[in-house]
Structure formats: structure tokens, C-alpha cells
Design a binder for these strands. Structure first.
Lengths: 224, 224
DNA sequence: GCTGAAATCAGCCACCTGGCCGATTTCTTC
DNA sequence: GAAGAAATCGGCCAGGTGGCTGATTTCAGC
């Protein structure tokens, strides 16, 4: 494996991004960009055609998003490893991507060195995560493995919101639209609307802005 | 990033292992083994003395095991990243190591290439996990829902807002509708709409909910 | 007195939002 | 197995919201 060059496929709907990564990676003697794709659907096809070692996968793409594309690529028994790239280290994306079978997750602001190393690492079969991602993963994980989980907190407090509703409330308090939340949680927008409505009724609020205010006042979310 | 060579400390009670890794890593032009330790206690000391970039840490060691040693090294605010190495990918070890603050976790049967890449990756600040480990971590973790985090965009300072606009922004962050604000400020609703629009444009936001979030994040308003 | 910024107001319009109705599926609980 | 809670999805619709254009008035600064 370490003999030949690492063959990479870049999947991103933005030309600038593809160009940048392409130049960057081709500058490495052991890495070669063998193809590009402008959406998830095309990425899946290209993987079949080109059998690359690594796929640099953007999440937000038309046709078929990076998560779904990753799922399909992994489902097919290709040897290709998927390294997901995104601008923001959104939790949901990370978990979804990794659960979809991605080998790694990096932020787009990674340096050339980090990117190249990342490609090599996943090509070698390891898993790679951005530090901020891992940190949250660990902290979250230790929360559920540690016994000090007394009841309440996410439950009885805020007017009997269900877990899912609380989850949605937090997203509202981050300024996401219904469509964005739907994409984030991978459900239909109508589902989100249902959750939002129930939240407003249960909390006795009028609109999502009041919900956001409530979330801050109730310390469900806190200023950075 | 890593302009100079990456300085590595090897902590393992077995001489053969230390030797092997040492030769292996020193063969890399950008990596230099600057010291060794035969137990956890010594590893902690050596880190203080040598300030290495990366510590290759075995788990089973006399005096102070790798987990505890990692905890101490991370507790001290050294810049050293800990890459834990072990023969078996035992769950307890993995979780404990990661919670102790390790940056990565690799199996000892990793190839020279994998090891070297691993060192480079953690030195660059990323986190590295063997794939089997990541998978378990994800599955374990995904059993529980989570409170995501997002906050994008570097906006211009809200100092660009006029007094009146700031006033309106505060009201938005109190959950008032345009009609209510109009009544409160004794102006027409259309006037409020104009203010709201300008606020959104100036701050690069999409809707009033994001404006409310912004107000809280910018401490323009603070939770009760 | 001219100028520019700020505050005020109006109308139009596409879109998102929230309310309301109903429906299915999966679980837990009894 | 019945009953209920939770999560999912769809459709319809009135109304609020935000974008865009244009206009008036006041006032500070030159």
C-alpha cells in the first residue's frame, strides 16, 4: 500500500474548493488526485469507475449529500475510505458521517500538511478526527459512561419537553431554520414543524424567536 | 505548523519495543526520538524535562500506568500530545485513555508507515483512533442524544448599528414581534420592519431568531 | 445653505412560519 | 394484547416576516 501513490477522489460542489485541494494534494509525491465529483450521486459513480483509495467528501452537496453518498460508498464493498470535510464542526454531521462509515472527519480550514497527513492516515486504514470533534466526542461519551447522571436536567424541567423536542429547541436557539434542522437531523421538514409547534405550545410561547430567548434564559444554551 | 522535526518521547517498559519504535521513527527525516521512559512516573518527568511534541505511551507499565501518566501529562499544561499504544484494543483502556486526555490510540501491530503518520497527525493537533476503536466509540455514543453546537460567521462588530437599531435588536432579543415593537416605540410597524431589515443586513444574519441569538452571544442582552 | 446620515413611513411580494387536521410506526407499560 | 407516548410525515392555509424600492423629515457637520 505504501508503495504506490494514494489515489484520491475529490467530491465538492464548489469548483474553488476542488481546485484548491487538487493542487494541494498533487503537490505531494505520494498522492494523486484521480478525479472529481460535483455532487454525491456523481461521487458514488466515480468511486465505482475509478476505485480511488480515498474520497475527500464534502457534506453539503446537491443531488445526494455527503452523508448519504458515504453510506452508499461504504455499502458497496469498495476499498475506498471516506474522509469527510466540512466548514463547521457540527456535531450532528460528525456523528452521522462516522455512523455512515466515514473513516475521518476534518475541517476545511485544515492546513495542507494536515490534509495530506489525513489522506495518508485514512488510506492506511486508520480513523481520523479533528481535535474539537474528538474532544466533544470524549466529553459526551464520558457523560454517559460515568455514573453521576442524576435524573432531571434534560427532562422534567422545561415544561415536559421530550428529548427530541429539547434537541430541536437547542437548534432553534442556534438560529437554524426548519429546513436546516430537518437536514441536520435527517428527518422531513414537516417533522421539524411538528416538534416546533409542540415546543411553542408546551412552553407557552408564540414564535421561534421567543423559543430561542427562552433557551438562553433557561440556560439550555449559554453564550459562548 | 511543524516546521522543525517532531520530537518524540517513547514510554514503554519493554526495551525491545522502545528500540524498535526508536529505530523506526528516527528513520523518518521529520521525526526525532528525543528520549525514552521505562514507566509512567519516568514518562511524566521526561516530558517536563524534554518537552517533546508527542509521547508514545504504552498502557501497561510499572510504577504508574499509561493512563495515569497521560492524565498527569495533560493536567500539567504541556504542549505534548499523547499517543497511546497497546497490544489489544480493550474497551476499558481506550475509553480511559481518551478520557485521560490522550490524542490518539493505536495498536502496536501498526506498520511503520502508520506509526509515523500517527505521530505526525497528533503532533499537528488532530486526534487519531484505530478504526475498530472509533466504531465502538460511535456506537456507544450514538445511543444518547446530544446538545449540538453551532455559531457561524464572523460578523462585523455590532457597533455599526445605530442607536435605534440597537434598541430594536434588544427588543427582538426579548421576543417581541414587529407590531409589539412598533407599539412600544410608538412608531409605525413599517418603520420597525426597516430597522429589522437593516439589522439583519448589517450583521449578516438571516432572520430575527438569529438576531436574538446574536444579541445573547454578543452579551448585548444577558440571561436574567 | 448644502450634504449626508438617521429615522420615519408605504406598498408589493415571495417565502417561511405556525396552527390545525389527520395518519403511521415503534416502544414501553400495564 | 391493549393503551399510551413519542417520533415520524403529509397537506392546507392565514398571517408574519424579510427583501426591495422609493419617499419624507430632521439634524448634525462643513
Amino acid at each position: 500500500m505504501s508503495i504506490g501513490t494514494i489515489r484520491v477522489l475529490i467530491a465538492d460542489d464548489q469548483m474553488m474548493v476542488r481546485e484548491g485541494f487538487s493542487v494541494l494534494l498533487n503537490a505531494m509525491p505520494d498522492i494523486e488526485v484521480v478525479g472529481e465529483a460535483v455532487n454525491g450521486r456523481q461521487a458514488v459513480e466515480r468511486v465505482r469507475e475509478l476505485a480511488p483509495d480515498v474520497v475527500l467528501m464534502d457534506i453539503r452537496m446537491p443531488e445526494l449529500n455527503g452523508i448519504e453518498a458515504t453510506r452508499e460508498i461504504v455499502a458497496a464493498d469498495t476499498t475506498a475510505k471516506v474522509l469527510v470535510l466540512t466548514t463547521f464542526d457540527l456535531d450532528e454531521y460528525v456523528y452521522q458521517a462516522l455512523r455512515a462509515g466515514a473513516s475521518g472527519f476534518l475541517l476545511k480550514d485544515a492546513s495542507a500538511r494536515q490534509l495530506a497527513d489525513g489522506v495518508r492516515v485514512v488510506a492506511a486504514g486508520e480513523a481520523l478526527l479533528a481535535p474539537s470533534v474528538t474532544r466533544r466526542l470524549i466529553t459526551e461519551f464520558s457523560k454517559l459512561s460515568d455514573p453521576p447522571r442524576l435524573m432531571s436536567t434534560a427532562h422534567a424541567a422545561y415544561g415536559d419537553l421530550t428529548d427530541r423536542e429539547t434537541e430541536v429547541l437547542v437548534l432553534i436557539a442556534q438560529g437554524l431554520s426548519n429546513a436546516e434542522m430537518a437536514e441536520r437531523l435527517v428527518v422531513a421538514e414537516s417533522t421539524i414543524k411538528t416538534h416546533v409547534s409542540r415546543i411553542l405550545v408546551k412552553l407557552g410561547l408564540r414564535d421561534r424567536t421567543q423559543a430561542a430567548v427562552f433557551a438562553y434564559e433557561a440556560r439550555l444554551v449559554t453564550p459562548k
